[in-house]
Design a protein around this nucleic acid. Structure first.
Lengths: 235, 235
DNA sequence: CGCGACTTTGAGCATATTCAATAAATGTGG
DNA sequence: CCACATTTATTGAATATGCTCAAAGTCGCG
């Protein structure tokens, strides 16, 4: 189902301002890019971009939608290790001469840009602004992973779920409806819980008037309630 | 107690071969380093190198011993998010213009090299081999974090502990005594468990003859036993 | 309208925690 | 070098948190 949409065109790319080429002035772009050729792919929910253990050939930038990076155990248990958004670079294990350490799947319908590894490395080495953007991406990725490790290792179920909701809705004004394109199962896989546990706490908070939701959106009605769950809860 | 041991000397540094300067030929080193001035510090168990939230001034390389990077919750719960070994670079959040996202503490007696951030950035930008080593360090850090997320999110207590032991002893030949300079409490903080749980399983495995240990060393007598705990356990 | 997938809810259970007490190891000062 | 104080580790019993299994309810889509 993964569908090739044709060659990418960095110059007209709608998410360039969020990509690793963000700081290249438009008129300098052709010279930076050179004969670097990307391609655009579209995929739908749960389609695989690459799998854990695969030998990398490309690195990717997400143009539209959301991606989940997952790891799994032999018996099928799954952990989502990161969610990739708009403009983010992923699938770069090859730059350290390693196979992919996780599987990448479409969380929603997505559009991705495939960047050939060798060309990308050439561009990075010759362009400080690209280099800097990539470095910052890796450091931010590490920071996010550290935060998630704190959640999974030290927080209890309701604390994890509440801080997840608050983080998800962080950049939006209070009381707005917000897309949450993760199923209950996916939320559980992200937070190291079971579907049932996720469902129970969400229902509880709906009854208490902290949140409202439809199948794929949420709204924080009383984020103070959730904040209390996050820190006061432990006492 | 943090004690300044004097200026660092990259040329004679015993761990240079493991550092980000590993690939610089010895005779090129002075020109690469220029007037970059490092300093060497020694610290003892549980002394703090920097704290979560601090504004970074330096980046560090570990010369001797082990370091733990931790995060904690308001009520005091602690999570170790990474253990730093020999030659590894840490404390680089400043390169992404961020404050430190975790606290760094000595796990054993340690010796660290303090690298001024701006000088390091200059060297990285001008030296492909330094740049590459740093990039690979970040990518490897991300991979390690992903693996740890799988452990914390998807594995049960005995599985976590068994895979921790196996990983710790991985590079050593079967049956060797191996330093394990983490207290039970620290193992618990790393694996998202309580001291009691850690102690219980270790005792159990000692009785079963899988492992032997002294206060700060272990020996895998029957690593097959542990391997069974890791994957067979779940069935 | 009916089927299939996802979600909610309930009841019982297992795992890991908490609290408490004992034991072992380590360090300190005399 | 020993006695004592302090920290660290072990073990036990009771509890709670989150999981498993099962059933009913919702939603979306053809």
């Amino acid at each position: 189902m993964a569908k090739l949409q044709g060659k990418g065109n960095c110059q007209t790319c709608p998410i360039r301002y969020r990509s690793i080429f963000a700081d290249i002035p438009e008129d300098k772009l052709p010279e930076v890019i050179g004969d670097f050729r990307t391609s655009i792919l579209t995929l739908t929910h749960n389609e695989v971009i690459y799998s854990e253990g695969d030998a990398p050939t490309h690195t990717y930038t997400l143009r539209k939608g959301l991606i989940k990076l997952t790891k799994s155990l032999p018996d099928g248990r799954i952990q989502i290790v990161r969610i990739i958004g708009h403009g983010e670079l992923f699938g770069f294990d090859g730059l350290a001469n390693e196979n992919h350490n996780h599987t990448a799947l479409a969380l929603t319908d997505i559009e991705i840009c495939k960047l050939p590894m060798s060309g990308l490395e050439r561009i990075r080495i010759n362009n400080p602004s690209v280099d800097k953007a990539m470095m910052q991406g890796w450091i931010q990725g590490l920071r996010a992973a550290e935060n998630m490790l704190l959640d999974l290792g030290a927080k209890k179920a309701p604390e994890r779920l509440a801080s997840f909701l608050l983080k998800w809705c962080k950049d939006t004004e209070q009381g707005q409806w917000i897309d949450l394109p993760l199923s209950r199962t996916e939320i559980a896989e992200l937070l190291g819980l079971t579907v049932e546990t996720v469902s129970r706490f969400l229902s509880d908070w709906k009854r208490k008037g902290y949140i409202e939701d439809t199948r794929s959106t949420v709204r924080l009605v009383d984020s103070d309630g959730l904040n209390q769950v996050v820190d006061g809860y432990s006492k």
